[in-house]
């Protein structure tokens, strides 16, 4: 019996990266979706009632629109996003060789604009950037998350994990205190989730618009009365990367709907 168990454990180690201490095991990982009520779920389930799909529609139009002094559209290089972008968002943040660090999907879009379209960068949380990232991420719906598998990302995943477990802010709370140790409990009646990043960019009813994972993380930091990292800060990218790596194997839901 114990021999068999050892073999299974050994096989798991080969098949997937070992869990870090305190991390939620694969079979216990739950998307924020499972913490929502039936009405909010219904809003996400049907594409014709999911307000995030309005952004996907806009993103599809932008994908084909020429931009910048190079006069090129995303589609001119990448072709049909349904083929070329399938699974891409599930691998982000990804390591950029030229920069020697991970970049988010939003940063990749802006790198593409700078390097291939000679276009100005789109600002954080702008409608166009959210629309493009929603359109790209939508092509990965149902695809299992593999971000962080690239060995070059290891130190950055570790940096993100260190930030995840570090207490911060006037309330002196770490992400892990709520989202690893206390999910399924309630903060003033609202369920505490595992903080799984499976649906970004997502339509948050609180925001009444689509928003990025960075926006959500900054909002959490404000919640514990910490000074939020700036958009695009390496720490925020590392946190995003760690969260995606922590959600390894979970299917993408973009654009999700959350309360």
């Amino acid at each position: 019996m114990s021999v068999a168990r050892t073999i299974i454990a050994a096989m798991l180690l080969v098949a997937a990266p070992a869990l870090l201490a305190g991390e939620i095991p694969q079979d216990a990982r739950h998307s924020g979706y499972s913490f929502m009520g039936p009405d909010t779920r219904a809003m996400q389930d049907d594409d014709t009632s999911n307000p995030g799909m309005l952004f996907v529609l806009d993103g599809e139009a932008l994908w084909k629109t020429r931009s910048g002094s190079a006069g090129r559209a995303c589609a001119d290089c990448h072709g049909d996003a349904r083929e070329s972008m399938k699974g891409v968002a599930a691998r982000y943040p990804a390591f950029d060789k030229a920069l020697g660090r991970p970049v988010t999907l939003d940063q990749r879009i802006n790198l593409c604009r700078a390097n291939h379209q000679q276009a100005t960068p789109l600002s954080h949380e702008s409608r166009d950037l959210l629309a493009l990232s929603a359109f790209v991420a939508h092509q990965s719906r149902g695809v299992a998350i593999t971000a962080g598998d690239d060995p070059q990302l290891k130190p950055f995943v570790e940096q993100g994990r260190a930030l995840f477990v570090q207490r911060q802010g006037q309330l002196n709370l770490a992400c892990t205190n709520c989202h690893d140790d206390n999910y399924d409990k309630h903060l003033a009646g609202a369920p505490v989730t595992q903080g799984q990043p499976t649906g970004y960019p997502l339509y948050r009813l609180e925001w009444q618009t689509l928003g990025s994972l960075e926006r959500r993380l900054r909002s959490c930091m404000s919640g514990v009365r910490a000074q939020a990292f700036d958009y695009g800060a390496p720490e925020l990218v590392a946190l995003e990367l760690y969260l995606m790596a922590r959600a390894r194997g979970m299917p993408m839901e973009s654009p999700a709907v959350r309360p």
Binding site: Q168, G169, Q170, N172, N182, M221, S222, R225, A226
Partner: peptide, 24 residues
């Protein structure tokens, strides 16, 4: 404990700019 220290202003990390140095 996850209970914040309501009257303390030291040993905290990255406290919001407007709250730094102040107890809760």
């Amino acid at each position: 404990t996850i209970m914040p220290s309501y009257y303390r202003n030291d040993g905290l990390v990255r406290v919001g700019r407007n709250l730094a140095g102040k107890p809760i």
